[in-house]
């Protein structure tokens, strides 16, 4: 997909009149027939960091994602919301090809990072993941020391030339993750000994130690208590200055608090993408409205 296409699409012409017709239809039943062919709102932007075109995902015979078109802008925080099972996590895992690790998962369509296809044979999945890092739903620190957890990425990628440089990376990453003050005296203790929130921030520190360009977060707060959640959300806001962040969340409040744009997924289809404020105050699509007003989810 060329850049000109994207530019055209970003004007919104391609998605013209859809919303009004849908909004008129206020019946309560939800069926796939209501889902638009292409997402309403502003799925495409100019000069995107990542672009996705006609993305399909299959698990064996079953199709989980249908023809998704979406752009992620540079240094934005984009939230993906939707009822459970809508495919938002699956979609997120496509962006750094984490789905490769799942047997009989097939991805179709085109995904580009800085205008290079991530499925390109020349582009390496290892360096892709170094550029597009990921934080998972459940904190998953390695059964190693805190220091080793953060140093793991730089070590395998050979980012540090010596011990001092590695120490520096570890310290900055932990600082960026807001964990440094809490753990600086016990770097050699196992990472599994930290509290849930600390573990998740450790995983974020681990991800940013590789200095990725994009960070994917798959419901990073779902296993955490409200206080830890608040800390992570603060952290996301700070990180958004340097990184592009795509976050999947089941909490609409969280999406509203942390993101610049919000994408709503429904049964494997991307239904609506818009500025977060627009999505939450004035959703264009009936399904989006139904979801954010809590009628299903």
């Amino acid at each position: 997909m060329s850049l000109t296409d994207t530019a055209d699409a970003s004007t919104g012409l391609a998605f013209g009149d859809e919303p009004s017709t849908v909004q008129e239809n206020s019946s309560m039943d939800v069926s796939t027939s209501d889902i638009p062919e292409t997402a309403v709102g502003q799925p495409l932007v100019s000069d995107p960091k990542m672009t996705m075109r006609n993305v399909d995902v299959f698990y064996g015979e079953k199709q989980a994602i249908f023809k998704v078109n979406l752009d992620i802008a540079r240094n934005e925080v984009i939230a993906m919301i939707g009822p459970s099972g809508c495919g938002k996590s699956t979609f997120l895992r496509c962006l750094n090809r984490m789905n490769d690790t799942i047997v009989d998962c097939r991805v179709g369509g085109q995904i580009e990072l800085d205008e290079n296809s991530i499925f390109d044979a020349k582009l390496d999945v290892v360096s892709l993941r170094a550029r597009v890092g990921m934080v998972f739903q459940k904190p998953n620190p390695f059964p190693k020391s805190i220091y080793e957890n953060v140093a793991y990425g730089p070590k395998i990628h050979g980012l540090a030339s010596g011990r001092t440089e590695l120490d520096e990376i570890v310290e900055t990453s932990l600082q960026k993750a807001g964990l440094w003050d809490e753990v600086k005296d016990r770097l050699q203790e196992p990472g599994t000994g930290l509290s849930g929130g600390q573990q998740q921030r450790l995983c974020i520190a681990r991800a940013i130690a590789v200095s990725p360009e994009v960070i994917l977060m798959d419901e990073p707060c779902s296993a955490l208590d409200p206080i830890a959640t608040a800390k992570i959300e603060e952290l996301i806001a700070e990180l958004s200055e340097n990184f592009t962040i795509a976050i999947v969340t089941h909490s609409m409040q969280q999406a509203a608090r942390v993101s610049d744009r919000t994408a709503y997924f429904h049964l494997g289809y991307l239904v609506e993408v818009n500025d977060t404020e627009t999505v939450f105050t004035n959703p264009s699509h009936r399904l989006t409205e139904a979801y954010i007003t809590g009628r299903f989810g």
Partner: peptide, 18 residues
């Protein structure tokens, strides 16, 4: 530029790692 250098470092080590 820092980010670029990261990627360069990653790519430089790729051959050996593979």
């Amino acid at each position: 530029s820092e980010v670029k250098s990261t990627i360069e470092k990653v790519n430089a080590g790729l051959g050996k790692r593979y």
